[in-house]
Amino acid sequence: MTALLVLLQTALLVALAPLFNGVVGALKARLQMRRGAPVWQRYADLARLMGKESVISEDASWLARAVPYLTLAAILVAASWTPVLLARSGMSFAGDLVMTVALLAAARVLQALAALEAGTTFGGMGASRHLALSGLAEPALMLAVFTLAIGAHSTDLSTISRAVATAPLGWLSPSHLLALAAIWLVVVSETGRVPVDNPVTHLELTMIHEALVLEYSGRHLALLEWAGAVRQMVLLTLVASLFLPWGIALEPGSVALWRGLAAWLGKLLAFAVVIAVSESVTAKMRLFRVPEFLGMAFLLSLLALASASLLR
């Protein structure tokens, strides 16, 4: 039963990841008075890419071919203990919040290496920016993790989720809300969303994430795109389950699980609306303004921690 639930939750994250991007795209199109692509478009894109030939640079080593698989696998491992419907995971013993952060960082390091394989300019550009920005996001993220872990006396994902869900109005404490604000800024940066990066840009001089995968094509590109979507899904689900765990099932049971599913989908839809609106009304920042943006996240995390220790 526990194994089945682990499998089910991972499968949900993987299967619905492209749909989330499709929904955000459709919402943005509506907000911008366009008709836009159908929400299923991302699946069609992936299927098309999967069937295409993959081209690898003559200058690349074996690493370039391995990285799409390694990236996807690392993110899937992180997904396997993410609490989606149920705040009790059979995989809790294998990994915690710090391990999730480390696996996402591992995927980032591998992708940055692969971007330098082809010996062209754009890969280096993507790697350079990606390393700088996620390097700055890391301390803010870790401080937010710190705040959560102190409240729950654990860095285990399910334990944190249960602790927040069962504490009466625990999510309303100032430290929790400040940490939520901080982690949202980090998630925006890590998923390459406006105002840090534009996921639909094709203008070389401004792109960050897109430049990292520019040298990939066909099946490899499909795997990397999918991995990116799953990573975004994992991060958003973490926000949903750790900071806003209303409706998440505390014990396995069909009614509780269905309620958990409905709550999770509802929260994701709300996130999609927030992202679509904020991407439509804000412009992308200059690259060197982003450190200030992440500095704000760091400051918010620090305030969260300070208020957590003051208001105990």
């Binding site: 069937g51 030939e53 081209v55 640079s57 003559e58 698989y69 062209t120 099946r219 795997l223």
Partner: peptide, 20 residues
């Protein structure tokens, strides 16, 4: 994913080409 990619895209080979 490796097995799946092999099975589904059997005709889609990996080709080496000079960097663009």
């Amino acid at each position: 994913p490796f097995a799946w990619a092999r099975a589904s895209g059997g005709r889609a080979e990996v080709r080496r080409a000079p960097s663009w």
